[in-house]
């Protein structure tokens, strides 16, 4: 059980600096190589090509009557499509922007005023707010009410009361025809 203590590094200074340089250079290249080897594993956890491709959903909105709302799935998330009544549109436009926690006019949140399309995820902690079905509570502002912590949204999907910091998100969407939209 020989315990050998050796200091093989006791060589003349020139040799020492040369070996040190080689040691540092090799270590640097080795570390760089390891970092480059790690990246593919991390990147493999980013969304795969087929996930990225499933990023649009088309919806036929012809059967949604005025005053009705429909929930569709887009990228795994609920999207509220509400066919707004004249009264709801009026209420949305009439709100003073200065009253809003997340100031946005109704105009910039819709393409056609009678169609409000928002992601149905409360911006507080992610619950799905109520208000899509006729019997659902809609809160004081006629929009949506989140049962988890009491956030209330108006007829433009904007946060009016409760802990949520931001308005309901408006996804990218296009009107393919007057009666069909593509989300995403």
């Amino acid at each position: 059980m020989a315990e050998t203590s050796t200091t093989p590094q006791a060589t003349p200074p020139e040799g020492e600096t040369r070996r040190d340089f080689l040691l540092y250079a090799t270590t640097a290249v080795g570390v760089a190589g390891t970092a480059m080897a790690v990246w593919p594993f991390i990147h493999s956890m980013n969304p795969a090509a087929d996930t990225l491709a499933m990023s649009t959903t088309e919806v036929d909105i012809s059967s949604i009557a005025e005053g009705q709302a429909v929930t569709v799935t887009w990228r795994g998330k609920p999207v509220f499509i509400r066919h707004r009544t004249a009264a709801e549109i009026e209420a949305a436009k009439a709100t003073a922007v200065s009253e809003l926690r997340d100031p946005e006019t109704d105009d910039i949140r819709v393409k056609k005023p009678e169609w409000l399309i928002v992601v149905g995820i409360c911006t507080h902690l992610g619950c799905v707010p109520l208000g899509q079905k006729p019997a659902d509570p809609k809160g004081e502002f006629g929009g949506w009410f989140c049962p988890c912590h009491g956030s209330q949204y108006d007829t433009s999907g904007r946060i009016r009361k409760g802990p949520a910091p931001k308005n309901l998100a408006v996804p990218n969407y296009t009107f393919l025809t007057d009666t069909s939209i593509r989300i995403g």
Partner: peptide
Amino acid sequence: GFLIVLTAMFYALKRKIWADL
């Protein structure tokens, strides 16, 4: 290509370290 360079460096370092033996 990278590995050839790195392996060459490992070899040079190995020779250096073993030189005193």
